[in-house]
Write a protein that binds this DNA or RNA. Structure first.
Length: 663
RNA sequence: GCUGCUGUAGCUCAGUGGUAGAGCACUCCCUUGGUAAGGGAGAGGUCGACAGUUCAAUCCUGUCCAGCAGCACCA
């Protein structure tokens, strides 16, 4: 059966090599080393491949035996075996349920089932109880390689159509691997544990059930996906559940309500009603970005929101993006008509769309007047309000909305200037992220997709320019082959927040296509009309989304300069009211957002209320402060208070309130 | 958009086939209290919308709208 040598040499992590008969399994090797290792072993690493203890080894290799002490393989196996154990439990309770796939994901696993009836939360409890029985039974796990015909035949017999489809996707020449957990069988590439009892019975939890398309294809069957989380110990599970609770407390939708930042309502789904507090954050951030862009060589412009379809047809959006656009039909015959009834009697309808992007309008600005190569690079920036008809299921608080404002800009430049502009933009963006408290970010470099326009030479050149730019500014990147836009490659910038979540914010895209479609030209040194390149770029992405990220990153406790109410001056006795007004006036004169709280409430009450509202500084005033012209300062989250002279406090807070670019 | 769940006072949530309740918030009164909720009284709801079943619907059924989770989407 084996063509290879009858003896193989396996090298262990300590460097020792030993000879074994070919076809030996890691289980045999572990048993050969010691009985305790044989018991503790969970899997092996063979030449870097995660290897089931039951799989034979047929060639020389580096080998390491894994135990539960090895985190990565242990978690992988626990979660993967739990996927199978859960599927087994489900089929034992409801034999008619069809199984599909059940991979390991971050912190756990899921398994997709085809079942008529929806799984209920009570069902999850039943399944979990059954899983614990299966674990307690310590059922052996075994595996075999089957010829594909036999496997297909088997699944025809058990009426598992999804499994047959999975086998069809396996290359013809490969046998099919089967696994058994006790008597329950599943198609699986493995590896797995030795028996179900190796799974910690108290360190997993079924979390939720949700729909998911078979093979991720929205045209195909909707399945029911059950999510579970699993760890090595009960403590780790508890920690994870606690972390989820903490994340829920940071939810910008909850904090937005508590801090009175914004609201949304059903008459305007996916659009934000900004309240004074929220709008204060927005305008502060926008002011900051405006200064940064000016310093970065951008000229700010503003363009229309409602634009005739002709422009969208010319730009190509009408063909490719119409399903995402808000279309506005206006009866032009009513022009000058004041009688509403007459207006309804349409004669002539003009079709407009709310702009989903600013780029076509920016080209219109570029196209006004003749441009010279001396004008390039021309950097046009707009805080552009866009509307996109996002699918209802995609909406999420202010993070994914239908109406939003981008910190958008388009750089018109020559091919030679792309690299320099890209490098400038990366530095520009890195500087802003650092000042806003996100020093670490990741750049993803998306290269030419299969469906694309433009010559290979042009793609080669532009991709090279971006890559050189990233290297020139000394950044790392990850490659996303084939993920670029049809017209050009792009860089996407990802921030990681305080609890490890990743957010896509900045973007930089090279586009030779739109200038072509919209007829943008400049006069080159040789006197010829020449096509410029257009670079689409954004740093924050959208203000809405970025503010959502800031809220969640800081759990509502925004940096002082961004906080909507920076200081509340709270009186302890009403005799301090006049002094409180004076203090607030002094703070406001120094550019600080301050308010008085002279309500007839105890200081405890006021402190609690403003703390809950995340006001960074509370100044308490009683008889003593009035007498001494001092303030008692308390910072959010600190119990300690400090008594300071008024003038000193105002000066210190004024410094602290200075935006990072003006320090 | 798809699957499932949810929609009751400003917020968080109970509840019932005979048109509703709590806590907090709000208003007023008492209290002037030194750093995370002082006391009392009061006001506040077309029970998401529209149909249907019923003598009677907030409750049952259907459709729609919105929200939540996941999937798909995010040229």
């Amino acid at each position: 059966m084996h063509d290879g040598p009858s003896q193989i040499s396996l090298t262990f992590p300590d460097g020792n090599a030993r000879q074994y008969a070919t076809g030996i399994t890691p289980a045999d090797i572990a048993a050969d080393i010691s009985t305790s290792l044989a018991k503790k072993a969970i899997s092996a690493d063979v030449n870097g491949t995660h290897w089931d203890l039951q799989w034979p080894i047929t060639e020389d290799a580096q080998i390491a035996i894994n135990t539960m002490k090895d985190d990565a393989p242990a978690l992988e196996l626990i979660r993967h075996d739990l996927a199978h154990i859960m599927a087994r439990a489900v089929q034992e309770i409801w034999p008619e349920v069809k199984v599909t796939i059940g991979p390991v994901i971050d912190n756990g696993w899921y398994y997709d089932f085809d079942r008529e009836e929806p799984f209920t939360p009570e069902d999850l409890g039943r399944i979990e109880a059954r899983m614990k029985q299966i674990i307690a039974a310590r059922d052996p796990v075994r595996t075999e390689l089957w010829p594909r015909e036999k496997a297909i035949e088997h699944y025809r017999g058990t009426h598992e159509p999804y499994k047959i489809e999975l086998i069809d996707a396996i290359p013809e020449d490969q046998p099919v691997r089967m696994y058994w957990h006790g008597d329950w069988q599943d198609l699986c590439r493995g590896p797995h544990l030795q028996h179900t009892g190796q799974v910690p019975a108290d360190a997993f939890k079924l979390m939720s059930v949700a729909g998911a398309y078979w093979r991720g294809d929205s045209a195909r069957q909707m399945l029911q996906r059950i999510y579970g989380v699993a760890f090595k110990t009960r403590d780790d599970l508890k920690k994870y559940l606690h972390m989820l609770e903490e994340a829920a407390k940071r939810d910008h939708r909850k904090l937005g309500r508590e801090m009175d930042l914004f609201h949304m309502q059903e008459e305007a789904p996916g659009q934000v009603f900004w309240h004074p507090n929220g709008w204060s954050i927005y305008t502060t951030l926008q002011g900051y970005m405006r200064r940064k862009q000016r310093a970065g060589g951008y000229a700010e412009i503003n363009t229309p929101q409602v634009v005739d379809r002709k422009l969208w047809e010319a730009s190509g959006h009408w063909d490719k993006y119409q399903h995402h656009m808000f279309i506005v039909e206006v009866d032009e015959s009513r022009d000058g008509e004041t009688d509403d009834a007459a207006v309804r009697d349409k004669a002539q309808t003009r079709i407009n769309a709310l702009k989903p992007m600013n780029c076509p309008c920016h080209v219109q600005v570029f196209n006004q007047g003749l441009k010279s190569y001396r004008d390039l690079p021309l950097r046009l920036a707009e805080f552009g309000s866009c509307a996109r008809f996002e699918p209802s299921g995609a909406l999420h608080g202010i993070m994914r909305v239908r109406g939003f404002t981008q910190d958008d800009a388009h750089i018109f430049c020559t091919e030679d200037q792309i690299q320099e502009e890209c490098a400038r933009f990366i530095d520009f963006t890195a500087d802003i992220y650092r000042e806003l408290g996100f020093p670490d970010f990741e750049i993803k470099f998306a290269t030419r997709p299969e469906k694309r326009v433009g010559s290979e030479a042009s793609w080669d050149y532009v991709e090279g320019a971006l890559e050189n730019a990233i290297k020139a500014v000394g950044r790392d990147y990850t490659l996303e082959p084939g993920d670029g836009a049809f017209y050009g490659p792009k860089l996407d910038f990802y921030l990681t927040d305080a609890i490890g979540r990743v957010w896509q914010c900045g973007t930089f895209q090279v586009d030779p296509n739109l200038p072509e479609r919209l007829g943008a030209t400049y006069i080159a040194p040789n006197g010829e009309k020449t096509r410029p390149f257009m670079l689409h770029r954004a740093t924050l992405g959208s203000f809405e989304r970025f503010i959502g990220i800031l809220i969640e990153e800081h759990a509502g406790k925004l940096p002082f300069w961004l906080a909507p109410r920076q200081v509340v001056v709270a009186t302890i006795v009403s005799e301090a009211d006049d002094y409180a007004a004076e203090v607030v006036a002094a703070l406001r004169a120094a550019g600080i957002r301050a308010e008085t709280d002279t309500r007839n409430e105890k200081i405890n009450y006021k402190v609690r209320e403003h703390s809950v509202a995340k006001v960074p500084v509370i100044l308490a005033l009683g008889h003593r402060e009035v007498e001494d012209r001092t303030v008692t300062l308390r910072r959010l989250g600190e119990k300690q208070t400090r008594v300071e002279p008024l003038a000193e406090t105002v000066a210190a807070l004024a410094t602290e309130a200075t935006p990072p670019d003006q320090r």
